[in-house]
Design a protein around this nucleic acid. Structure first.
Lengths: 226, 226
DNA sequence: GTATTTTGTGTCTAGTTTGTGAAAAAAAAA
DNA sequence: TTTTTTTTTCACAAACTAGACACAAAATAC
């Protein structure tokens, strides 16, 4: 499998580092730019490698929209816009200009990576990422969960948490790790909120709730037992 | 951080030098071979050091595919094939043989280094850390212990203590050392609490409990005896 | 041999961690 | 806005564990 290169454009270096870390963990290779002008420079230099661009809207020198317009004149490379809360009113406007997706800050690592992968999948023509774990079926495209074929309603966090556990089946996950991967990066609440969600998920999974094991003193682990 | 050794196999010395320069800049250490036969020689000589091989397809004496096949008979070391443009039709064929990645010439230094790093990450990251000590199997990711294939329930401290002993198999560990490594730094209780845990662990390990030896006047030592 | 030191082991409990239901707060939908 | 849903916090119950302790057993010293 070859690596996919993503260009991350944001004026805050902390934000760039954050995104870079998430993506590198998933084996993307990452290029950075700190403002619109640099973004265009880097883009032209590595045009043939860059398969996706993450573009902050608010930037000095040349804002995200301008960068978007310029790149769209020459390429259809997928572009995801990063917006701060409250900027959503521009969304329609953006789609016309060829924005593929929006992610609003603050976002969770999972969401970020999932959107990036979803778009790359779409562009590359692949789809349908359905996996089954001992009768628990997760359709990542439809964001649906079925237990023994019967669909279960799950809220956003419940789904994300279950997905994270399941993606890391067999691995004991600490509450810290879970918070860092499933919750937004600006969440600093009680890690026991995880327990509450676990309770609900277990309940919804019924008998199969026992696949979520408690790792006392550590956290939780998903494992299908025979 | 220790250096990673890469073996570069290519018949053109210019190409080898080029790649070597890129990699050395990134602190890899590089071994070279100018044809397939030499490649196997060098590989066998430095097998335990080499963590990745960059292998040109077109070479005199023994081509890349043959080298690949031979190495794959004895090792899963990551291999990146270097192909000239127009050779891509062989790719599928190669993946079956266990090629991890292709890079086609001409390539950019950045791509080369990025791919190498990505692969090393992938390999090191997914290394499931399961080790077996005379029938005692410890899965560090899942934090589980099996004795002769049967899973044993262990509490946090029990697991950590056993893991510590096992990671230092063959070494006599003093109670002080154990306390400093397994217990929190703020523990100032009786070091004989270790004995209590050792007792429990030995019990849970059953017959294999005797692998934990008492070092009278010192502490304990884990050693697998035949 | 006996005395002394060190380790093994069973039991007890105080303290910690997790499960859980319900309330409060926040977010989303109507 | 109001209503509904989701997320988070809280409080208490339940479950579990670490560590202490006492005495037994074993090793070592004398």
């Amino acid at each position: 499998m070859s690596t996919v290169t993503v260009l991350v454009v944001d004026d805050e270096s902390r934000m760039r580092k954050l995104i870079k870390d998430f993506l590198m963990q998933k084996n993307f290779s990452v290029l950075e730019a700190e403002d619109g002008e640099k973004a265009l420079e880097v883009y032209h230099e590595h045009q043939k490698d860059i398969e996706l661009i993450l573009l902050d809207v608010m930037m000095p020198k040349l804002d995200g929209w301008s960068v978007l317009r310029q790149i769209r004149q020459e390429s259809k490379v997928p572009i995801i816009m990063l917006t701060a809360r409250g900027e959503e009113q521009d969304e329609l406007f953006g789609f016309e200009l060829g924005v593929d997706e929006y992610i609003s800050k603050p976002f969770s690592p999972k969401i970020l990576v999932a959107r990036v992968e979803a778009i790359l999948n779409r562009v590359n023509g692949n789809k349908n990422d359905i996996s089954d774990y001992g009768g628990i079926t997760i359709d990542a495209d439809g964001r649906t969960v079925k237990v023994d074929g019967k669909q279960i309603e799950m809220s956003l966090r419940e789904y994300e948490l279950l997905k994270y556990l399941v993606d890391n089946a067999g691995i004991a996950l600490s509450r810290d790790k879970i918070l860092n991967n499933v919750w937004n990066y600006d969440y600093y609440g009680d890690s026991r909120t995880i327990d509450s969600h676990i309770k609900k998920i277990r309940h919804k999974l019924g008998k199969k709730g026992k696949y979520i094991e408690t790792m006392r003193g550590v956290g939780y682990k998903f494992e299908v037992k025979k």
